[in-house]
Amino acid sequence: MVLAMVVCANAGDLLLKRGMTSIGAVEFTGSGLAHAFRLTVTNPIIWTGILFLLGFMICYMTVLSWADYSYVMPAGAFGYAILTFLAVVFLHESVSPRRWFGVILICIGVLLVGQTKPRTTEAVEPQGEKVTA
């Protein structure tokens, strides 16, 4: 579930970047923001990215229902390692040693957090409604 969360998040981010690049730089004025909003809601690449981010959201909500936020959050950083590998394999980008070192640190950090207990808090009392799970 965490892996699906990371893959969906990164696919969504990449598609959003591609979609927003096709729109161009957004002007930070009232009319500029309104114009950018019209362009974003009519762009199919952005909608595909949003679908991936919706998948991420469902995975994220499910994981947060049983695991700590401070446990789940760093796992998302594993996506930077995936992005770097994808950039090398598919885009044939050259990656500096400094960047590889950063990726290694991220992986070690995620592994360290992964070794801790996933949940350290008690269940939160539901707000009025009875939880059947």
């Binding site: 770097t84 950063g102 990726v103 991220i106 950090g109 592994l111 360290l112 957090v113 808090t121």
Partner: peptide
């Protein structure tokens, strides 16, 4: 009120340093 122990903090710091380098 989560119990963020040393290992978790070290992991988070490593992730942040890694991200900064990237």
């Amino acid at each position: 009120k989560e119990d963020v122990n040393v290992a978790r903090w070290v992991g988070v710091v490593l992730v942040c340093v890694g991200v900064a380098l990237v």
